[in-house]
Amino acid sequence: MSRIQGTFEKLKQQQRRALIPFFTAGDPSPSVTVPLMHALASSGADVIELGVPFSDPMADGPTIQRASERALKQGMSLRGVLDLVAEFRRTNDATPVVLMGYGNPIEAMGWAKFAQRCADVGVDGVLTVDFPPEESSEAFEHLQRHGIDPIFLLAPTTEEARIRQVAKLARGYVYYVSLKGVTGSGSIDLSAIEQKLPQLRQHIKLPIGVGFGIRDAATATAVARLCDGVVVGSRIVQEIENSNEANVIDHVSALIKELRLAVDQA
């Protein structure tokens, strides 16, 4: 059983929802990334989505764009991210880690080598924003060979036939993007999510995480009532941006604890 699957099964037994924080590796600096990951885990994160910075983050709003720029300025790269995961795994063998980013850095490394490295360092899942199922056959083959879960996005615009297609390919969990827009934009429309989820559930047997637009405890609770996991990204990255290296761990830990309580109230 994969770490992701194990995590969700345990949560299900406890009748709890997953809290899935995202932040960009290397932001504010590479030396803070592993301590931040441990802080997330000890403050209540169930899965960590670790952003791989990219020069052209087309699906991201200004907050995560700036995080990518900061990380790249610090020399962060896909190789560097994989090394950081290896370091994290030395003292944490339980918390699933999902790499999230754009396809080109992986294309540059080569999918075969990338999947091998993921398996070696203990990456559990990979989400490439700009690789839809139609273009993912090579990626899928290599990830599957090494037991890495391909995580797919579904959107409010996704129609039934594509939901079925994603249902066949997806492993681990499925990430439902709750609004039309880039990361960190707009405000969440709970009734729209509530309407869409039954259609998703009809085909998707995996846990469904919902993200985009979750900015505080109240929305986290409300979203958690509807799904299996709550993904929080820009809000955390904003917290990192507003902190310094001395207090960033404390600030992020406090935020995660607050979100954990909120998710558990669902």
Binding site: M58, A59, G103, V129, D130, F131, P132, E134, E135, F152, L153, L154, A155, P156, T157, T158, E159, R162, V177, K180, G181
Partner: peptide
């Protein structure tokens, strides 16, 4: 190669 929201 596009994000899911734009595929449709």
């Amino acid at each position: 190669y596009m994000a899911e929201t734009l595929i449709p």
